[in-house]
Amino acid sequence: MAELPDTREKLTPDTFLRGLWEENPVFVMLLGMCPVLAVTSTTMNALAMGLATTFVLVCSSMLVSLLRNWIPKQVRIASYIVIIATFVTIVDYGIQAISLELYAALGAFIQLIVANCVILGRAEAYASKQRLTTTFVNSLGMGAGFTLALLALGTVREILGNGTILGISLFPADFQPWIVMILPPGGFFVLGAWLLLFNWLRLRKERKQTEQIGVTAHAR
């Protein structure tokens, strides 16, 4: 039997950092948009959602990675979903135990973590092919990137829509809240603005790189 080429990734800082910037699940891959738009009306909700998703992401990816040689190819998606659902149930009860208020604010979106594309995408595209250690680091990076994106939306929406951050008032008492920001359209506006910023930064970087290549080519 021919040996398959080793596709396993070596552990580098990039394994972690990719999730934060280059392959950011929200700003670059546009995955998991549902919670991104729905539960980011306050910073607290955004942070809780981000951490919950990260927990499920890391745990399920590791389990998938451990079991990758035993899961038959034909039923892999179903198996991944069962694994993810297990951890979502844990998070669901966990949040309920920690803060009932937060549980009510996040609503159905905790259970909906099970359908989050970021998690299934990691299981399918990474964890099912990689070693436990790299999977752990990579999914942690992805989770951190997801949390970062949620926080980016949540802080802007809470500051403009409520004049507060994590419930602490930032402005004098007669601050005029931008009510639209805590309404659903505000989520789209802020997400659009962040995507604009990210794309602009990425394009600028790419343009600089091509210019540099052009300059060196010219110098030769």
């Binding site: 005029q176 931008w178 009510i179 639209v180 920001m181 309404l183 359209p185």
Partner: peptide, 10 residues
């Protein structure tokens, strides 16, 4: 429409 949604009182 944006300010109608953002500042309904004003």
């Amino acid at each position: 429409a944006f300010v109608q949604a953002a500042f309904p009182v004003a």
